[in-house]
Design a protein around this nucleic acid. Structure first.
Lengths: 240, 240
DNA sequence: CGTTGACTTGAACGATATCAAACAGGGTGG
DNA sequence: CCACCCTGTTTGATATCGTTCAAGTCAACG
């Protein structure tokens, strides 16, 4: 038990994850049912429409939630980073597919045991609820992007969103706050699936921003934002 | 008090709204803080980014939630029908704009009083939570539509969605289950804002379905679905 | 009737998709 | 160490779908 406590005390995402709201002894109870899981990229966590057997906090790495049409067209409907919660309490199965994008470190909880704790621990469900409201806000933000933004605006918004998330979980490669530098967790194909575009269009927009000196690339995954002002302007208002 | 109970007992949406989960005496407490509000179309319920002062159940009518870009481009990010809940418990303000689309009958609750009840009534927050998970599912379903479906598929999906909602709240005009007939609550402009298209494209797609004998129109708002099979096929797979 | 606003229809244009080829980096086997 | 793929990415040419701009229709209403 003391050991469990210790584990959570040293957890990198402890204060930002849903468990952050818990009291010390409650954390211990949660910790007692926690199991750690390390997954390589491309691992399926949840099949579309399948039953879920566990919940999880993401300790590190990135997970994508996707939906697919009959003919194979795919859309990423959610991107989860360190400290995000995976799973739908009190729901039997998932309406989407969840898959690791990078190496992922999960802190998992058996479904039944977790739901029992949620009922027993005062305020825990409240925290999960508020977390879901945040997810809903992000989803709706993304609906605006998907329905109304141009390709250039979409890519700019995406880069900024990733930059912010990477920053907040301390994964930035650089230390100049004005010129963030980070590794893109997604491939071009995945970015396209997230933005409702094709690979080629994503690539062209990124190339254009490179030519325009808004960003710089090292290899294909490491991005530096050179001109934050213009990137933010490009997010809502495509220049001609 | 008895009067309040009575009011809820005869409520059209009582069993499907979030209050449907409550015990008899709990309904009475909720009823005690309820106020009814009748609004004409085009009335703003919530300003983007403004503070919310009340929650509400929709008793009848349709409400749209929208987000707008700096230059005026708009996206409907949620469409709420009778029995849907409006508001974000324990959040100070709203990240989107809510506006009536038709005549709307609301059953409203003061924010503070409602939140107190949520804390006091066992299982009430749970119900609100599950309701929010449903909203999240719808939002993600719509992300797939916005990002990956063609104009024709979008319009077909929209008609089917409205048909289903109208049916479930008993607003269908016809009684043949194979050939639903109903009034569109949205104008062409609103449909366009919901689907991420222009008015003209929406109009053309509807005209095409009319020529193809998949639907029939009376005036501009009343729709009959003539061929449910083909409408459902058109939803996911655009014919050439 | 004439006006207004919502909708439809048509023609031209443009953004993004599609198709196709070239390119780059990283691993493998020789 | 190099030749060879393999996969992901970039770039180019063309096609297509949906937008834009512009009329035209229609019903409601003064």
């Amino acid at each position: 038990m003391a050991e469990h406590l210790l584990r959570c005390d040293s957890c990198a995402v402890r204060h930002r994850a849903v468990c952050g709201a818990l009291e010390r002894d409650e954390v211990a109870r949660l910790s007692a049912i926690a199991h750690h899981k390390l997954l390589p990229p491309g691992q399926v966590i949840l099949h579309d429409n399948a039953e879920m057997h566990y919940f999880a906090n993401i300790v590190s790495g990135v997970v994508k939630l996707t939906k697919t049409l009959a003919d194979g067209r795919q859309q990423i409907v959610g991107l989860q980073f360190a400290s995000d919660f995976l799973g739908r309490p009190f729901r039997a199965n998932s309406p989407y597919h969840a898959e690791t994008v990078t190496d992922v470190h999960l802190c998992t909880y058996d479904k039944g045991q977790f739901e029992r704790l949620v009922k027993e621990i005062e305020g825990f469900e409240h925290r999960l609820f508020q977390n879901t409201l945040d997810e809903l806000d992000s989803a709706r933000e993304w609906m605006l992007l998907l329905g109304r933004k141009s390709a250039g605006e979409k890519v700019a918004s995406f880069l900024l969103m990733v930059a912010r998330r990477m920053e907040s979980i301390g994964c930035k490669v650089s230390d100049d706050p004005e010129r963030p530098r980070f590794n893109l967790p997604l491939s071009r194909a995945e970015i396209a699936d997230f933005l409702g575009l094709t690979i080629e269009t994503v690539s062209r927009q990124i190339s254009r921003m490179k030519v325009d000196k808004i960003i710089a690339l090292e290899g294909t995954r490491t991005i530096s934002i050179l001109d934050m002002q213009r990137l933010m302007a490009a997010m809502e208002q495509e220049r001609d």
